[in-house]
Design a protein around this nucleic acid. Structure first.
Lengths: 333, 333
DNA sequence: GCTCATTGTGTTATCGATAACAGTGTTAAC
DNA sequence: GTTAACACTGTTATCGATAACACAATGAGC
């Protein structure tokens, strides 16, 4: 009808009629049916956000950043969680597509299958932007933090404190290859002329997927029982570091005197552990804001290039878990 | 077409045709258009979950519980966060309704306006179930934990340790009336013949809405500077308690010897503060599961009564922040 | 006065799924 | 052998919004 024109302000409508329509709309509490609209291929003004999980303080800050930008542009966000199950992730992505969101932000860890699912969505013409998960072979914009550099600087910090036997906790040697944080560790050692020792690398064997507190506990137990344990470890993330702390205490090590621990993420708990953790902080909110902007640019056809990638800086937060290193009586080869 | 019958398994379709349709569907990667379906008033098999925010570990556990049940019944969940803004909450609820979810789970704190928005949704025929937020005057099912009893038991624990001057942190005396945790505090004192002293109640003046770490800090500063400070405080939630801990340390109080602190929620950090917090744990996952079941019962018309309310038990987790009370030299009137 | 542009309004068709109905053929019942 | 019941399949109309078009009425320009 003419009503559609009046409400959307498109085409010719006399002021007179327009007012009447608006009044009637208010009186009847009219709300346009988003579904009917999108059935015709129009925008739903909704975007989906795919998260690894919700417990994660990372997710919270990321979503806050994303929402800030989305709201400003009139988009609504629907969230979904994968809970580390590729099945759940695929189901949620499908649900987003089925409900015709205008675009999707993906912040889960990468897997082969997941990447294929994302590529399929792109092929359907729905824009996708990932956070912390660059995707090869598909025109998917990506925003990340420089995990490599963050890890590099944290490990350099350990080296500058005098450590030479520095372990890595949170991934098995076989799966370390595609973990940027591991490369940062590796390269920092190399840059200071320290040889990489695979016996100082410990973590779960289930691929590069994730690493939990329990994984950290197990890994530290393994390293702590070596004839010559490391004098410092870099943990892949704070949860892993917390598990490592627990193991170190049980083994009777004093932190940081016997073993210094640094990690990654700077989650809130990291400031409250005993001792508080030295860890790498990444600009999460900013990643969310940038990613959201990338997505909106795609949705509104303001950016049509092949692929944009953005990498933001991290910084090391120094706390007591790496306090000044004193050589142990029998230690230091 | 006949295709619809084949795919949905309704009405008569010969086995022969059914197979052909299924094959074609697979070949074309056919996905039914949920929107078109719901345009006809049918189910979208999606439900909305309205959360206060995401940082909250409460949200995480709640969603996990909810998802568990939803998934089993073939529903997809879309989450949204209110971030303490009634505006955002209303916008998100409207978005859920616009996108025709089958039902909504609401876990935000109550406000007058929010309640009215929920009542309006119910009137539109969309089932709503709330968690921890009973709503008067509307047929909204609700699942809660017994905050009253939890607080009652925590405060009783303090009393049994010998405390008599027990403060309450996290709400101003004027707004305490509709806070169940406060009533638990009040009634525990009364039951043990201890008079309520309004000078020992401190919290933000901005209504019963919420209380943060900063609120806890400010409140403890206020109580700690009294001529006769309390020997114990009960904090409305763990964040508030953490702020209170910080203030107490700054004021030079030793916890628990000078002031014992108990709180509510048992968030993960609570086990890692110095000293670890005695706090009340509520069965969050179970609340989520029950609420989800309530909602599905409504959606699938398996329950048609006026209103169901369910209240689950809490329990006190004793840690070092309330360690055995030793009378202070000059204290204890 | 005629043509044409401009402004305003109503009509039809469409998106995809499906309910309701209208057919066709086949078998069973009396 | 006629009627009735059943099995199957195709047709039409519908949900709500809107693009595309058709049709008025008005005024400008020559």
């Amino acid at each position: 009808m003419t009503a559609s024109r009046a409400i959307n302000g498109t085409g010719y409508v006399s002021e007179d009629v327009r007012k009447k329509v608006m009044q009637a709309a208010k009186a009847l509490k009219y709300r346009p049916n988003v579904l009917a609209r999108s059935l015709k291929g129009l925008s739903t003004h909704a975007v989906g956000i795919m998260l690894p999980d919700i417990a994660n303080p990372f997710s919270a800050q990321l979503v806050a950043g994303i929402q800030e930008v989305l709201e400003r542009s009139g988009y609504t966000a629907f969230l979904a969680t994968a809970n580390r199950s590729v099945e759940q992730e695929k189901a949620a992505l499908r649900a987003f597509v089925d409900h015709r969101v205008d675009g999707i932000l993906v912040a889960t860890r990468g897997t082969e299958i997941g990447n294929e699912a994302i590529a399929a969505i792109i092929r359907e013409g729905i824009p996708v932007v990932t956070v912390g998960r660059p995707i090869e072979n598909a025109p998917v914009d990506c925003v990340t933090a420089d995990h490599w550099k963050g890890a590099y600087e944290a490990v350099t910090h350990l080296i500058e404190l005098g450590h030479e036997r520095i372990g890595f906790i949170g991934v098995s040697p076989e799966h370390a290859a595609n973990l940027r944080r591991f490369h940062g560790y590796e390269d920092a050692l190399k840059a200071h002329g320290i040889a990489l020792r695979s016996e100082l690398i410990a973590g779960p064997a289930n691929g590069p997927a994730y690493a939990t507190e329990d994984d950290g506990y197990a890994a530290m137990m393994q390293l702590g029982r070596l004839k010559q344990p490391p004098t410092a470890v870099f943990a892949r993330n704070d949860y892993t570091a917390i598990g490592a702390l627990r193991a170190a205490h049980e083994l009777g090590f004093t932190i940081p005197d016997d073993i210094a621990i640094a990690s990654f993420d700077n989650i809130p708990i990291a400031a409250f552990t005993t001792p508080p953790l030295t860890t790498v902080s990444q600009p999460i909110g900013e990643q969310g804001r940038r990613a959201a902007q990338f997505l909106i640019d795609r949705i509104e056809h303001r950016f049509k290039g092949q692929k944009r990638e953005l990498c933001l800086e991290c910084h090391v937060v120094i706390r007591q878990s790496t306090g000044p290193h004193r050589k142990r009586s029998g230690g230091g080869k």
